[in-house]
Amino acid sequence: MKRDCRVFRHLTAFVDNELPERMRRKVEEHLGRCETCSRELDSIRASDRILASARPPALHEERWSEFRVGLSQALDEVDRETRRSARLREVRPLHGAFRRRVLATVGACAGIVLVVLSLGPMGLLSRSNGNGDDCIVDSIETYAAGYTPMFFTSEDPEMTVIWVFAEEVEGGATGEALGAQ
């Protein structure tokens, strides 16, 4: 093998198309004359073919973008989980106190509502005393001729009746017809 050829060291670059045009033409002219370099070139190309078949497939830029976005999202999720865990660790010790305060607030509100209702429309401010139909007649009189006023109170049903008897009443609607019990 004549390794002292000047182009020998450029053969790999020639295979990879990395030589300037002028050098490339010189290498091509030399390969036409030098059998050793030609065989070396074939060997290099064979090696490249073997390596090319064993290489992982090249990723397009789109795939790399997807990969970066996915990675970023995964990292964000990990970050959020970490922060959430940290917050829970902070809140959990306060949970009991928080619940007590809420219960105290609700209890205070319920107490206020009960007090106001007991004083309000259903309570002391306007409740009926149970006197019901009980009625006290302080005075009774008439200024019309022919009428005589009186009143009576029945116990069952509890009711006070104030009645003016008319002297000229027809149809029995007099004191007899009144039929007070």
């Binding site: 009926s128 005393n129 149970g130 006197n131 019901g132 139909d133 009980d134 009625c135 006290i136 007649v137 302080d138 005075s139 009774i140 009189e141 008439t142 200024y143 019309a144 009428y147 006023p149 009143f151 009711m159 006070t160 009746v161 104030i162 009645w163 003016v164 008897f165 008319a166």
Partner: peptide, 19 residues
């Protein structure tokens, strides 16, 4: 004035007048 009367009626109660 057929009738003029002063009463004290229980709150929410009813009295009957007539004649």
């Amino acid at each position: 004035i057929v009738l003029r009367t002063k009463i004290r009626l229980g709150n929410g109660g009813t009295v009957l007048l007539g004649g």
